[in-house]
Amino acid sequence: MAILSVEDVHTYYGQSHVLQGVSLEVEPGEIIALIGRNGVGKTTTLRTILQLTPPRTGQVIFKGENVTDRPTYEVASMGMGWVPEERRMFSYLTVEENLRVAVPKGVDPAPRLEYAYELFADLDEFRYKDAGDLSGGQQQMLAIARGMIGDNDLLLVDEPSEGLAPMIVDDVVDALRAASEDTTMVIVEQNFSLAMDLADRFYLLDQGQVVESCSTEGMTADDERIRRYLSA
């Protein structure tokens, strides 16, 4: 059974009809990439899945339950994590406090924090530093760690490589690979080769609709189906 089904969702920002009937399915253990040009609705798709921007019509099924229009905190508590675009650290909180917020209530935080520090040595070094003082790469690590230490079965990752130096991107890819061992993922990524490298399957979006979906195996940016939608 799919861990996530998005069924014909239509999402609006005011009068603007952003998602025009998006449907997708994610199987447990998969990494799915959402690709497409800027402004085609990739981030909105993630926000719709998490009910931050609920759809006007259509539904989102997560772990067999219809979560459409449920409060975001309830959907997140069911095991859906979010690594948002631009990281969105709590910049006045320390690294440790940022992580602590993500540990579910009633769970001993110590092992979770140690797990995060084992994965990301930089975070261990700066655990008492304000998150706002970290570099872009360190913040991205923290955002991923924050998504990983909850009881999440599905992680929604938005533009993980955005604004990072190539060397740091390699570290981020390693971190995402480590995360994918325990968690199913949906990744929005502008960097096509990175997306293809990480993902098992992809959905190509254009003008608020899924126009292509298939396995990433052997897929290159030169493929005519891809080129048509990704070129400006």
């Binding site: 931050l52 905190y73 997140a76 709590f90 917020v101 993500a102």
Partner: peptide, 11 residues
């Protein structure tokens, strides 16, 4: 700082 992010962490 960011109530939306806090919600997305299940709070």
């Amino acid at each position: 700082e960011d109530p939306e992010m806090v919600q997305a962490l299940g709070i």
